[in-house]
């Protein structure tokens, strides 16, 4: 156990010493700020939106505290920006060890493969939590400014902080399958470029395309989409989503087919376990070439 903790600390040091993590955090924070800014500007002057006044009022409320705080968190979920950032981070953190031949640096010193991989997975957890935290903070700033601008004060008392913490946990959960599956692909391919390509390709194209195509085929086919990680993530995050976000990017048939949050959370954990198991299966059989 002590050895695993030591290794995890070493992995965390390797991760935090890289610029990539900090660049990703800064970029995510800026993107969340920018997206909220764009939404606020659009709602300020909603020309062409053709929305009834009640819907517009609901959307505006969704950008204000306390609802806006919860809504902001969803940007970090696995099916949205968070998934993309996780793919790049995990690919670089894992596959680059093969490119640099640094895997052997540890294994040739008696570090067991099981511990090495477990430490890598554990070290990623705080990094994923940091992605969620940065999203929350920058979302809080953006929605806070919007709230201040439209109401003239921040309703601190209305914010359910404990609930917000649970929401953060939900978002973190949606990132886990993307991290575990990327880890598996990185171990299998041993290439950062291929892992990033496959990961982003799947997250940006395959998942969304599958949802759209299956939704058009038949109601039964649409129901299949509920088992995709992106739809499981949406199911887990249903309590967080404002009306506006719930309508973005999800075909209505597929949205109707979402699982309940509990089973969806189990589904996400199953994907995570499958990703880790695949990574371990491949890693323990691999020949690691010397430099």
């Amino acid at each position: 156990m002590t050895a695993l903790l030591t290794l995890t600390r070493i992995e965390m040091r390797k991760l935090t010493a890289r610029k990539l993590l900090w660049v990703e955090l800064a970029l995510l924070g800026l993107l969340v700020l920018a997206l909220h800014g764009a939404l606020a500007a659009a709602l300020q002057n909603p020309q062409g939106a053709d929305l009834p006044p009640e819907a517009l009022a609901e959307l505006r409320a969704g950008l204000r505290w306390p609802q806006g705080l919860r809504g902001a968190l969803t940007f970090a979920n696995g099916g949205e920006l968070g998934g993309l950032f996780v793919v790049v981070l995990v690919a670089a953190f894992t596959a680059q060890e093969y490119t640099w031949h640094t895997v052997g640096l540890w294994l040739s010193r008696g570090v067991s493969r099981r511990r090495y991989l477990a430490a890598k997975a554990l070290a990623l957890l705080p990094a994923l939590a940091a992605l969620v935290l940065v999203t929350l903070l920058s979302g809080a700033v953006a929605t806070g400014l919007y709230t201040w601008h439209s109401v003239g004060a921040l309703p601190w008392q209305q914010v359910a902080w404990a609930e917000l913490l649970v929401d953060g946990g939900r978002v973190l959960l949606t990132l886990l399958p993307y991290a575990a599956l990327t880890l598996a692909v990185a171990v299998l391919t041993r290439s950062t470029l291929v892992t990033v390509g496959l990961g982003l390709g799947y997250t940006l194209l395959v998942e969304n395309l599958a949802v759209e195509v299956l939704s058009l085929l038949s109601p039964d086919a649409a129901r299949l989409t509920r088992y995709l990680p992106t739809m499981l993530a949406k199911a887990v995050l249903q309590p967080l989503q404002s009306g506006m976000q719930a309508q973005v990017g999800v075909a209505s048939a597929a949205r109707d087919a979402l699982l309940a949050p509990g089973p969806a959370a189990l589904g996400l954990l199953a994907y995570t376990a499958a990703g880790l198991a695949l990574a371990w299966w491949a890693f323990r059989r691999q020949d690691i070439p010397t430099a």
Partner: peptide, 11 residues
């Protein structure tokens, strides 16, 4: 010490 030793370039 095997071949070109492997290190993390940023450390």
């Amino acid at each position: 010490l095997v071949g070109a030793p492997a290190f993390y370039p940023y450390l």
